[in-house]
Simulated assay, not measured.
Amino acid sequence: MMATTHVFAGLAVVAPVAYALPDFAAPLAIGAILGGLAPDFDLVAAHRRTLHFPVAGLAVAVPAVGVAIAVPSSGTVAVAACAVSMWIHAASDALGGGPEMDPWNDQSDRAVYDHVRGRWLRPRRWIRYDGAPEDAALAVSLAVPALVVFDGWVQTVAAVCLAVSLAYTLVRRRLVTWLPDWLE
């Protein structure tokens, strides 16, 4: 899935809390955005293995939410939103295709690494590849809560990310031919 889809998923999860507790809207949004993006920082390492924790991430997210409920503060809710979004990102990568640049050609049997079991989870391919039309549709639907519940800079970031998502979808399959050989 696109990084923006993961960001929208995090924002959609925290949107009901932000609606109920508007004083925490900004820290929730910051945590959700960072958590939605952070796992993909491993693109320069072993992608979908180094910073993706589809099973173990839940062991961090649940206590973080518990702390945020027990001791609500800007810091605790931001950390909880980040942890939950990171876990959702990693877990949902198993719903897509493999991490290769052209998943429509080279159908990998590796979606995301499960550190608990020490093996790769297979791709489900519900979202065939990042930037696929179904990824764009999911991004649009997940962006709605962010666009409705949040205002100000969060709404602006969501709108810009939505525009980037749709533009990326239009050129995604062509990108592989535009990339230099050393990036493939």
Rank of each mutant, 00 (worst) to 15 (best):
I33D: 08
H6F: 11
V157Y: 00
V116A: 14
F24M: 08
V62W: 07
A139V: 00
A12K: 10
A26I: 07
H115A: 11
V84Q: 12
A46E: 13
A111F: 09
A3H: 11
V84E: 15
L170M: 05
R48A: 13
L28Q: 09
D102H: 01
Y19S: 15
A64H: 05
A159P: 00
V171C: 04
V13Y: 15
A25R: 01
S85L: 12
W178K: 01
R173V: 02
P39C: 05
V116K: 09
Y129I: 09
S165I: 00
R174L: 11
L166V: 15
W120G: 14
I127V: 10
A132T: 06
V176R: 02
E184M: 07
Y129F: 14
V17M: 15
V144C: 06
R124K: 01
A80Q: 02
V164Q: 09
L183A: 15
V55K: 11
L34N: 02
V67Q: 15
L37C: 06
V62R: 13
D23C: 02
P22F: 13
V164H: 04
V65L: 15
G98D: 13
R173C: 11
H47Q: 13
G96S: 15
H6K: 07
F41S: 07
L179P: 01
A167D: 06
V14Y: 09
L95Q: 12
V154M: 03
R124M: 07
V144F: 07
V157Q: 03
V84G: 11
G152M: 13
D109C: 10
A12D: 03
M2D: 03
L11I: 06
I33K: 07
H52I: 08
L162N: 07
V112Q: 01
V112L: 05
A78P: 00
R122Y: 07
F24P: 07
T76F: 12
A159W: 08
V60G: 00
A45N: 04
F53Q: 06
S141Q: 11
F150Q: 08
T177L: 14
P123V: 00
D106R: 08
D114S: 12
G152Y: 06
R119G: 03
R119Q: 14
F150D: 08
G152K: 09
L51F: 15
T156H: 02
Q107Y: 08
P39V: 11
A83Y: 00
A12E: 06
L21M: 11
V7S: 10
A83V: 02
G97V: 13
V176P: 03
A132K: 10
V160C: 01
A143K: 05
G97F: 08
A25V: 04
V44H: 14
A56M: 13
V160I: 07
A78Q: 05
A78V: 10
L138G: 03
V149P: 08
L58W: 08
T177Y: 14
I69K: 10
A38V: 08
R119A: 15
A32G: 03
L11H: 10
H52L: 04
L147P: 00
A159D: 08
W120E: 04
V112P: 10
V160Q: 00
V14A: 14
S141F: 10
L121N: 10
L179I: 03
D109Y: 04
L142G: 11
